[in-house]
């Protein structure tokens, strides 16, 4: 309980401890605290910014979607129009083709008719010749009379 040299010793230890705290302890710890505080603040700000950007992106996405829908509708309309056109074209083509076929068929029928007519003419000529031969009861040389028969057949 006496005041003695301990006083000086304690004063010195106190000074050394304070110096040490100031030099090696306080700075790093409060620095870290400050840095973390800044980091958190930055993070929060970034989060808010991100949210804003998200809002903007949503708006933009809405617009893009609207555009896309309009475009799609446009494309569908065009496609329908084109389809109608194609159908019309096809109908026209078909009509032309049908007509062509009809014409061709008609020509063929005419040909057939002509051919049948020629055939019938020949048959009739031969019939007529044989009938005439029978009527004349005389052998008529078919070769001799062929020219006559042919001209007859043509006249039929």
């Amino acid at each position: 309980m006496n005041i003695n040299l301990t006083l000086i010793g304690q004063l010195l230890s106190f000074v050394i401890f304070v110096w040490f705290t100031m030099k090696y302890v306080w700075g790093p710890i409060t620095g870290a605290l400050e840095e973390r505080r800044k980091g958190i603040a930055d993070g929060l700000a970034a989060g808010e910014k991100g949210q804003q950007q998200q809002e903007l992106a949503k708006e933009r996405a809405k617009e893009v979607l609207k555009d896309a829908k309009a475009q799609a509708a446009d494309i569908v309309g065009q496609a329908q129009k084109r389809a109608a056109e194609i159908i019309d074209e096809a109908k026209g083509d078909a009509r032309v083709e049908g007509e062509r076929l009809i014409v061709a068929a008609r020509a063929e029928i005419d040909q057939e008719v002509n051919r049948a007519r020629a055939h019938l003419r020949e048959k009739l000529a031969a019939l007529v010749v044989s009938g005439a031969g029978k009527i004349l009861k005389k052998e008529i040389n078919a070769d001799v009379n062929k020219n006559i028969v042919d001209s007859l057949a043509k006249e039929l």
Binding site: F17, F20, Y24, V25, P28, I29, A32, E35, R36, G39
Partner: peptide, 17 residues
């Protein structure tokens, strides 16, 4: 006291403490 705080100060992290 100083040993404890110095140790913390040396390993201080600004991340999750």
């Amino acid at each position: 006291f100083l040993y404890f705080f110095k140790k913390v100060a040396d390993n201080v992290t600004t991340g999750v403490p």
